[in-house]
Design a protein around this nucleic acid. Sequence first.
DNA 1: GCATTATGTTATGCATGAAAACAAAATCGT
DNA 2: ACGATTTTGTTTTCATGCATAACATAATGC
Lengths: 150, 150
Amino acid sequence: MAIEDNGISLGALDTLVGYHIRRASSLMATDFTNAMAGTGIRQVLFGVLSIIAANPGINQSRIGEALGIQRANMVSLINELMAADFLTRKVSPDDRRAFVFELTAHGEHVVADALARIRQHEERLLSGFSAAERALLVEMLTRIEAVPLE
Amino acid sequence: MAIEDNGISLGALDTLVGYHIRRASSLMATDFTNAMAGTGIRQVLFGVLSIIAANPGINQSRIGEALGIQRANMVSLINELMAADFLTRKVSPDDRRAFVFELTAHGEHVVADALARIRQHEERLLSGFSAAERALLVEMLTRIEAVPLE
DNA sequence: GCATTATGTTATGCATGAAAACAAAATCGT
DNA sequence: ACGATTTTGTTTTCATGCATAACATAATGC
């Protein structure tokens, strides 16, 4: 059983993939927050913006579907992004219940800026990884994401 | 840019390691919760128990240090585990401010049961991974954990 | 045309994590 | 030995994330 720098053993956690994913996720989230300080962009919000940028005209439910966010929790996220003038929202011509979204010019700019910061942030945390290693890591994580939970 | 099963593109997210770690973490957390239903054990609680099991006599601050949990947030976790009779807490002979912890017999039993469930849960989500791949994944994640955030 | 499903919404609860401030004890520096 | 500093556990508070239930309105299926 490996002993950490601080002399504390992780015990069973040491070999649990889930634990290390959780820790890495928390760590990256913290650095992400720091990297985005002052921009008002959080991980989820960037996710939503990225989906809209790549799928203009997408509706709320499908954004949530892509990101694993429930319909109910999408509402306040969209409100937040609308209030910040990152999005335009129109009633779908095909479905009067649904809204379709696009980025505003301001939103486009913010996404570009955020992306630059995020790339620096990832570079900072993944400087020890070659491009091939990063791709391999993403590929492995994607395989986990692909597992159905019943 | 890759298109997902549902026909929605992830856009910039697609190549961001942080996004995939976040998604995998959330996914594993959900399945963990299901796997532990009825036991009262959550990811954090198992973490604390595992640290105590591997380092009997450890104090509260150092548990938090090992897991990246702040002192303030350790308090209610410990209270919860004490209330469930998983732990014994004694004042440290070396430091009258500090408590030292050990698992109760009940706690030992619960950890063993939880670990069995967790191994099944990991097996379920990582069935597509060889032992070498799992080790590689953990090794890569550990390298991220090792990066100082200033 | 009626039952069912989909979309967006409100409200609520629980869990996580960060921050500030505190008392009591230990440690450090001189 | 004594005063300043640090450490330990604690309370309180806040922001965020994620889940569930229930609802009105619109679309779809039979």
